[in-house]
Design a binder for these strands. Structure first.
Lengths: 199, 199
DNA sequence: AGAATAAATGAATATTTATTCACTATAAAC
DNA sequence: GTTTATAGTGAATAAATATTCATTTATTCT
């Protein structure tokens, strides 16, 4: 008769589908907000059946949390990059600032998704600390700058909030169409940022 | 028999109720986002029956738009205030900056509500131009500063985005509990803002 | 006080949307 | 190529939520 057939390798979930689902989720949330996200729309936009979403995720909430952690990791890599390390604090800061500004311009929907999510009250405690750890190196870099006396001795969180807030708002205006960024404007923005934190 | 009884003054809608409804709407949207707003929750929080909401507003969308226009007007008054007019550009700017920062600290839920709404895609064209008109005087003030050569010749929208973005982000951090603002910090923040736009 | 009108109510209804589930298609092991 | 397990499907169901409406309450005017 028959011997039982135990599977070694599970049949793989389609990585393209995962990416399509993430992409659709981010784009839809940017438009309609966290609570406005509809699973049917995610399914349609990512080209899978609604039921498939539940093969990948237990619930809408789990889907969104997964997308969040993923995106935060991607963002940390846009700021913290070995290539950005230069000889002076100023030059490294400049590289990081442009790295993040460039990322936001390229992926405004991801920037806005993360921004919305943080204040939505749906983020789990676990994910807060997981994602904070991604930015340890940035904190260390800024603390060093303060120790060297290159930048202002402001509370670290205020410093980061200030830098991030100005970038986000400008990018949002660009997306909205209220601002057309010329090459020169970007340089001016960086100068504004640097002047605000330098000692 | 009976003579018909035509009413001169309509029975008044309760202004306290309007205010309670607005307040509840703002607070709930801050927590759960635009689409997360539930009419039943608005009713409960503002102490009226669900049906009453439809006496005052045709739909949820109309309610939110009304709250938005109202809040924008209030915000414009927090920035543009005859008392703030001083002898120098610097002093007037300082008064305005503190006026807005103070308003945001006092009413973070209103600040966040407006921020969320702008990008929600539910704002009507009419309301965009109505609310923009509230800020004409601010634009004029900043243009004057540029003409006088006191502040950088940056695109006006970039300038405003930069100033607003940094304030918003810091206030959001304060609300989140990630920052504890000391008296001194506020002054430092102002200095950062001024250093970023001064010539 | 009594008639007319409009505000206010909240249970009932209509609509929207998350989730399930019976079924089909496909990949892994033999 | 046959078997088995799991991915994938989408119509059906369950749950959540906006809106309506018959009724009650309060206000204005004579």
């Amino acid at each position: 008769m028959f011997v039982w057939n135990f599977r070694i390798m599970p049949k793989l979930k389609d990585q393209n589908k995962v990416e399509a689902i993430h992409k659709a989720t981010i784009e839809l949330i940017t438009k309609t907000g966290f609570s406005g996200l509809k699973m049917a729309e995610v399914a349609k936009k990512s080209g899978v059946a609604t039921g498939t979403l539940y093969v990948y995720y237990k619930s809408k909430e789990e889907l969104i949390n997964d997308v969040y952690v993923n995106t935060k990791k991607e963002i940390s890599r846009a700021i913290i990059n070995p290539e950005y390390l230069k000889d002076t604090f100023y030059d490294t800061f400049k590289a990081m600032w442009y790295g993040y500004f460039g990322y936001c311009l390229k992926h405004p929907e991801k920037m806005m998704f993360v921004e919305q999510f943080i204040y939505s009250g749906f983020i789990s405690e676990v994910n807060i600390s997981v994602t904070e750890s991604y930015f340890e190196a940035l904190n260390q870099f800024l603390i060093d700058g303060q120790k060297q006396g290159v930048i202002k001795d402001v509370d670290m969180e205020i410093l980061k909030a200030y830098l991030q807030g100005s970038i986000h708002e400008i990018v949002k205006m660009v997306v909205k169409g209220a601002i057309e960024l010329q090459k020169n404007d970007m340089h001016t923005c960086f100068t504004m940022a640097w002047n605000s934190i330098r000692k």
